[in-house]
Design a protein around this nucleic acid. Structure first.
Lengths: 214, 214
DNA sequence: CCCTGTGAAAAGGTTCACAGCA
DNA sequence: TGCTGTGAACCTTTTCACAGGG
């Protein structure tokens, strides 16, 4: 029942990285870690890490550091990972299949329990344990698997339609990989990851480096 | 030779989205667009869009709006997309293959010209036009294809090693998809996209919504 | 003495109202 | 009049220095 006060968005975005580092440390048998070490391994600076953790509570021991298992438990709780969130993948092409197979999803409490695709050759079959359904079956699939989150990996032409169907069945969390700006009601949380956008940002800095040299 | 002054990072991150919208508008035959429309279609508000564009230059016409083709040309130039940047994909598993096939990469000037993998069954073969090489061939591959950017889609255990090899051959732009915090020299730009991090952020807000209701 | 937790300052980003040009 | 471009206010995030408990 801890409500964790108010955690800034920038902090929330970094918590998964800290959690990953803590899991790795625990696997290697480390039981205590300083903010300096944890920050270094997580790719941030120490004051930022401490400020981030201070928003969750005071889980460290002055003069010592943080207990790996305890901090791990607390971040896990803050992120709501105590609960498993079943996921449906919409669009079972190359990317969709890669995502459905992504072990990191299941490992972190986001099992992909079903996929949606329009290809009759795929519908009704199961690939790597993931059953493929037609778009018309979305309501049943969502209800049956208690789906909490939808991943969009359809071609761009199909993504807005898929989102509309999902929203109509009550889905309120969507992770979009198709390169298009989707429209959702205000109470639906949509996060978009455009793979080429990342390359374009890298491209910008490459070019800037050349200009700066001249 | 336009150096574009100094463009804030937050603006750079949004330019690809504006560019995408402009390309779509041009495809539908729209030749002029207001900041209000362009912002709406790009998923931002109008003042933010105008402020972003003001960092590139004054490309609009007061009382009228922006010329779609001209603005598209300018953003393209600002992002350095006038040049093609050949890409190598390291780790040719499910995700690597999906990325290598991703049409958005080639369309936006980032052709995937080669892949690297340790699997002897893949090395020496070509999949969907992408030749697969062994890690030891990285220097030759980079030189031969004038590779500018590397994408990491290896298992976590292999990613730091792959990055080290790439950096040694002179690669200075890396897009990492493996869920681990990689270490690179200060002059190498590393961007990381952890797919499960995005789900965890969605999970956080899901949980918060439940708490807020109580 | 060591390392965490935090207030205060600085930097970066967003919003707004409106000046100014077509 | 209409819509862009921008200075100023506001908010968020980061940084820093150090207070304070083990």
């Amino acid at each position: 029942m801890n409500s964790y006060g108010h955690i800034p968005e920038a902090t929330v975005a970094r918590l998964p990285s800290y959690l990953r580092t803590l899991v790795d440390l625990a696997a290697v048998g480390v039981s205590t870690v300083s903010s300096e070490e944890l920050a270094e391994l997580s790719g941030v600076n120490a004051p930022k890490l401490r400020k981030d953790l201070s928003h969750l509570g005071t889980y460290g021991t002055r003069g010592v550091g943080y207990d790996v298992d305890y901090l791990r438990f607390e971040i896990n709780g803050a992120l709501g990972l105590a609960n498993t969130r079943p996921v449906v993948v919409c669009g079972f092409g190359n990317l969709g299949r890669a995502l459905a197979n992504h072990t990191g999803f299941t490992e972190r409490g986001f099992p992909v329990l079903a996929a949606i695709d329009t290809d009759p050759a795929k519908i009704g079959h199961t690939f790597d344990g993931v059953p493929v359904h037609s778009p018309s079956e979305i309501p049943e699939v969502v209800k049956h698997h208690l789906i909490a989150i939808a991943v969009i990996s359809t071609p761009v032409e199909a993504s807005q339609g898929a989102v509309d169907r999902l929203v109509a069945t009550g889905i309120r969390s969507i992770l979009n990989f198709s390169p298009i700006n989707l429209t959702v009601p205000a109470d639906v949380e949509l996060r978009s990851v455009d793979l080429s956008t990342q390359l374009q940002i890298l491209g910008f800095h490459l070019q800037k480096a050349v200009i700066d040299e001249s």
